[in-house]
Every structure is written in C-alpha cells, then in structure tokens.
Nucleic acid binder design. Structure first.
Lengths: 238, 238
DNA sequence: GATAAAAAGTGATCTTTTGCAGCTTTTAAA
DNA sequence: TTTAAAAGCTGCAAAAGATCACTTTTTATC
C-alpha cells in the first residue's frame, strides 16, 4: 500500500540522494577522482562525533545509522541513511567537527571523498551549491519535525512512526511483490524512538496481538500499516 | 560570568547573524532594494507553518520564537531568534512551505525581503551561498543536539539548559553591569522545554529555594549559573 | 546440529511526569 | 485605585515510563 495522503513520509526523509544524482559528467568525475571505496561489516563505525572531519561518505549500498551518545552512554539515533545517500558533509560545510557518529546497520559499501575534493567540486560547480542549499534546508524541516514529535508524542506513537518510516527504508531493498522485512535490533529501535529496549518489546507484543505486525526472529513485518498510521497520530488529521 | 568551557553554548545557537554581516556594499544594497520594514507588537504572528513562503525576514530588533503546533494544539518552540538574525529562509531555499511558525516574544522591528530578491542575491553573490551553506550546516548540528537532549534528558535538566541559553539571549539586550532578566511567560518556557506550565512552576520554585534564581513577577534572574550548569548535566563532563 | 553468547521478552516495582482543581498573584484596563 | 482577566503556583491522584531481575529465544560459531 502507498502512504500517499495518509502519512507525511516526506517529513521524515532527507533525500540527500538528489545531491549527486545526474550531476554533469565532468563534475561527478572530478568529485570521484580520489574516491576510496570500502566494504564495511555490520556494526562498523564510519566516523565518530567530535572527530575532525576529513571528508564525506557516499553510501553505495546499505543502511547507516547516524547517532549521538550522551554522557550516560545512551545512544540516540537521529537518522537512518539509505543506499545512495551522502553523509558527513555537514561538518565539512560548517567547518566544524562531525556533529554525530555514523555506523553501519548492515553490510555496506561506502565511498570516501576527501574534504578538498568535495570543497573544490562545490567551488567549480554551479549546481552543487544550489542542491546542497536545497537539501540542507529540507533537512532543517525534517529535524524540527523530529523535535516536535520527540517532545510531545508518547513512546507508543513514536514507535508507530518509526516503524512506518523504517518500512519505507527497507522497501527499497526489497523486490516488488516480496514482503518488506524490517531488520533492526530492538536496541537500535529503542535508540531511534528514544526509550529502553523493554518498552519496545512490550509495545511490539501489543502490536502483534492487535494484528498489526508479525515477527520472524528479530525481523518485523508490518501487516496492517493503516492501523499503525492511526496509532501514529497522523491518521485522522493531516 | 562567562560560560566558556563550562557549557557548550555554541551547540544552542544558530548564529544566522553572520549571513548578512559585512556583506559587500552592493550585494547588501541589492538585497535591501525592496525591503519592507515593519513594527510588530508582542505576540504577533510573522508567518505560519504550512503557508506558501513569500520571502525572508530580518529581525532588526527584538526576539522571535519559532514553533510548531501539533494536532492537539500544543506548541513546541524550536528556537528563539534574536536581534540581527534571519528567519524564513529555509522554506525559500528548499522551495517548500514554511516548516514552522514564527511569532514575536516582545515588540520587534522586522524587515521583509521578497523571495525573488533573496534568490537573485544568492545568484549574483559569491559569499552568500557559502555563508548559507555554513549556517545551514551549523544549524543541523544544533538541531540534532536538541533532538538528543529532548529524547534523553529529564524535564529538570532541559529547563536548566533552556534557562542558561535564554540568559545568553537576554544578555544581548542588557547594558553591561546591569542584571540580566529573562522575560518570557511560563507558558512559552514550558513550550521550549516541552512540558506543561505546572511543571515549569514547580521546578522554578525548586530552583528558587536552592538559591539558583530570583523572580520579579514573570521575570527571572539567574543568580547562580554554575549550579544551573551542574543541573543541566553539562557540568561535570564535556 | 550443538552450544555458548547475545538479544529479546516478561513481570514487578519505582520514579518521573502529567493533568486536574482550586487558589493566589500579577497584569492591564477602566 | 479598583477590578476583572490572565497568568502563575501548589497539592494530589493517575498515567506513563524507566529500571531491575529473570526467563526464553535467537544468533553465530564451531
């Protein structure tokens, strides 16, 4: 089923894919001159919050979590980046250290582009600055939306929203007709929602009993998205 | 007292001032060609979330809250913009509707710059795109920081942080040597922290009894910032 | 496939936060 | 200065969420 009109999925997606999409041949070539492609295992850290930013990363394949760790050691996942997205460019553009950490959620292929190449590509390009401004501004909208939701919605609502969004992300790697399986640990799920693992387990059980989803080991399959949208709070209005 | 080294105040400030600061004469002149200056009373709405974005706003004097209202009518204040800051540019750059609403927290003087002027100023300028990229990227860091804090800190800690940040904002309009008075309603304070008015009143009383602050009507004067920083959770580490 | 380690699920309890009701103080307007 | 309305404060009860201990299931590795 499509979410169109039922759930504001745009409010939850950065779409940084569009930055490099259909870039003029020469500009793309230049950007890739010193590109360093690398395979990452599941759970590997790509960069850490506070580290001096040496470049940006292009996710050629896989899913990456972006997160912050607070002083008590708890992890807050800010965003899940998918195949085709760029990460790490904020630090370069702001000329600051990485504001968050990034780690793979599954096996990934990721290309590294050195800071200098990225910056001079922007310098030379006419479309890159414009695209970056657009993407960054859109990201702003996504993030303030997240703040409102985290500040005002219950854990149950937030879990519902998280599951809907994750389902869309996992849809991309799923063949048409095949069932969409969300494959993240309960702990990662808890760190996205901003609660403890136990709470997640409890609500997942509740959702399962309500016929909203089915689990296969750690994997989750949403069987009734509509009901989930209702719980998310976006169901009636918007 | 200075917060340097004690509290990461940079994590809480957009600093969009720097966008127009010391802009080359001609570029600034062009940007201001059709500028429309207007006086706003306290509490007036500047633009509303979801409205088609017609331009950007330059706060010449005063403080403005940026907020979202959820379906239950609750307001979440995302940011307080101060004298010298720009607002409304995200929507223009992203080519989307305003992602949040803006309203004055006090009497303000605000100048409106039409969308077309802003966009062609960017087109013609060499420094504007760069500055915008830098500002937007920094804003990203500020917002993800907010998400972590809202998701993981207690109401008491969040109030402490909010008070420290507000104090810095009100410092700007205060003559040197004069006492810094934070002048916002309990309701606005609650909407910044993301809780109810009653909770704010309770913790303010607690802080008052602990000798951290003093109230004069609705106005708040922080008398022991250090203690507040300890409560905020930034005291020991960072 | 066996097995150890890790992750997930459940129950009980404790803490934090919310929301209501009623009261007091402050503010603004007559 | 008076007065009405708005804003702020406090106590209490209920709800939501966090934490701990323990069991069960799953995953990964030999």
């Amino acid at each position: 089923m499509s979410l169109a009109g039922l759930f504001p999925i745009d409010k939850w997606n950065f779409k940084s894919q569009s930055i490099l999409n259909n870039l003029p041949e020469d500009e793309y070539g230049y950007l890739c001159a010193n590109m360093l492609e690398q395979k990452y295992n599941k759970g590997e850290v790509i960069f850490r919050e506070g580290a001096v930013a040496s470049g940006i990363f292009f996710i050629k394949k896989g899913k990456v979590k972006k997160y912050q760790v607070d002083q008590t050691g708890r992890e807050q996942i800010i965003y899940v980046a998918n195949t085709g997205e760029l990460i790490g460019y904020h630090a370069i553009l702001a000329d600051e250290r990485y504001p968050d950490s990034a780690a793979t959620l599954e096996e990934c292929v990721i290309a590294f582009i050195p800071k200098e190449d990225f910056l001079s590509a922007i310098e030379k390009s006419t479309v890159l600055p414009r695209r970056l401004l657009k993407t960054l501004s859109h990201e702003f909208a996504v993030l303030i939306n997240s703040i409102s939701v985290v500040a005002q919605r219950s854990v149950k609502e937030r879990l519902a929203i998280t599951l809907i969004v994750l389902r869309e992300k996992f849809k991309e790697g799923t063949a048409a007709g095949e069932e969409i399986m969300i494959n993240v640990s309960r702990n990662d799920l808890a760190n996205m929602v901003g609660t403890g693992d136990e709470n997640i387990a409890r609500f997942l059980t509740e959702f399962k009993l309500a016929g909203i989803l089915r689990t296969q080991g750690r994997k989750i399959c949403i069987t009734d998205v509509k009901k989930l949208i209702e719980i998310s709070g976006y169901g009636t209005s918007e």
